[in-house]
């Protein structure tokens, strides 16, 4: 990555700027792939970009950064996502 000289502080883009935010979770979203219709609502509405969209529009969760907010589960029209308590 290109670095810049300036008379001010500069932050540079990186994954996990606030750490591995997956550690904030109390509940984790689990997708039942057999129920999923690939509508992509969970991908679109996840604030974090923690629902990964595959080439074929299948979806999976990036547990390193998913904060467990539960929005994906509430927005899924097929109720294919359940929130399970973390151990």
């Amino acid at each position: 990555m290109e670095r810049y000289e300036a008379d001010t502080t500069i932050s540079y883009p990186c994954v996990g700027a606030a750490g591995k935010t997956g550690g904030w979770r109390d509940f984790k979203p689990v997708i039942d792939q057999s129920n999923c219709i690939k509508c992509l609502r969970c991908w679109a509405y996840c604030p974090e970009g923690a629902v990964l969209r595959g080439e074929d529009d299948s979806v999976s969760i990036d547990y390193d950064y998913c904060k467990g907010c539960g929005i994906c589960a509430r927005e899924c029209p097929k109720k294919a996502i359940t929130m399970e308590r973390e151990d």
Partner: peptide, 14 residues
């Protein structure tokens, strides 16, 4: 990038 410091469920971030 994922791993931003906003509250869980923040739609400012969305």
């Amino acid at each position: 990038h994922p791993g931003a410091g906003s509250c869980p469920g923040c739609v400012d971030l969305l």
